[in-house]
């Protein structure tokens, strides 16, 4: 008789995520997977392959293009979609700004992170998505710690922390009324370290900006480094430097700081992470520092 496999913690996290993805397939008519091009959504795609191959994915990939993306990430996105042979829907924040006459991000570092919400809600309406799978993790931020795995949003995409359904065992209740939709977070219980260890174990390819490389950066007053791009307006006295850096998240390039790092392999990154004492968001998001309740407000209004 064949031996019984023993499962380690990554196997268990993986099994949980696959179970959640299949629940989405089983419970919803028009699901979608929000694909940012970042490592968390790349891990989701890998998990979807494990959940649904040799079949097709029961959902398209949806990318909300801020127009401030790193070119390396867009290239990676297109190549991945082509390899997968799955449908990729791209909708741009630029178009939403024009259509809804919104005010674009201004100032020196014009973030479009808050504006993504508008495009997201538009695309949900356009395709009548009833479920959107996202790569958010509970360890990212305090308000996320209480987010459900199946999180119900009303017609306006709003999240009400007091009206959340109790989530019992691993029974996921995705029954909704017309106009509502569900955000689903299969890797809720993973930490940044878990994600990296999984990427390592599964040899998952990532955009190269996650690894140490030489880049021209602007030094911010806080000491953080921002990759130089056409979207930034520089002042004469801005300090421009060439540094060995990598990115820990790959959101909007105007508000995603680089960290100095010589880590060129996944092993290096994990070693870095075990030493580093600054959280992912703290290290790299410029716009979350606005207020302690920043994320909570944004989520109430329909953000990822």
């Amino acid at each position: 008789m064949s031996s019984i496999p023993s499962l380690d913690y990554l196997d268990r996290l993986e099994a949980e995520a696959i179970h959640i993805l299949r629940e989405v397939a089983g419970q919803f008519e028009r699901p979608s997977l929000l694909f940012s091009g970042g490592k968390d959504s790349i891990v989701l795609v890998h998990l979807a392959k494990k959940a649904f191959r040799p079949g097709r994915f029961p959902f398209p990939l949806v990318h909300i293009d801020t127009g401030h993306n790193f070119p390396e990430v867009l290239e990676f996105r297109d190549q991945l979609a082509a390899e997968l042979g799955e449908k990729l829907i791209v909708r741009s924040v630029e178009a939403t700004i024009k259509k809804q006459k919104l005010r674009d991000g201004t100032g020196k570092f014009p973030s479009r992170n808050p504006l993504q919400t508008y495009t997201l809600l538009e695309v949900i309406e356009e395709f009548a998505f009833d479920a959107c799978i996202g790569g958010a993790r509970r360890d990212e931020e305090k308000a996320r710690a209480k987010e459900r795995i199946f999180s119900i949003r009303d017609e306006f995409g709003q999240w009400d922390p007091k009206r959340q359904r109790p989530e019992l065992w691993n029974i996921y209740n995705g029954r909704i009324q017309r106009g509502e939709n569900v955000r689903v977070f299969p890797i809720s219980n993973w930490t940044e370290l878990d994600v990296w260890r999984y990427i390592q174990r599964e040899s998952i390819a990532l955009p190269n900006i996650y690894f140490g490389h030489s880049r021209t950066c602007v030094v911010l007053p806080s000491g953080q480094l921002l990759g130089l791009s056409e979207h930034l307006t520089l002042d004469d006295d801005d300090e421009i430097v060439e540094r060995q850096v990598r990115f820990r998240t790959v959101g909007d390039s105007t508000c995603t700081a680089a960290v100095e790092s010589d880590a060129v392999t996944i092993d290096d990154i994990i070693a870095d992470l075990l030493l580093a004492k600054v959280s992912e968001r703290g290290a790299t998001r410029l716009d979350d520092n606005i207020s302690e309740a920043g994320m909570e407000d944004r989520k109430r209004n329909g953000y990822f």
């Binding site: 064949s2 496999p5 196997d11 993986e14 099994a15 494990k50 191959r53 040799p54």
Partner: peptide, 14 residues
């Protein structure tokens, strides 16, 4: 399991 044929699988594997 995850695109591989296996002889044995256990809870809570998908």
């Amino acid at each position: 399991v995850g695109q591989q044929e296996v002889d044995t699988a256990v809870a809570p594997q998908g």
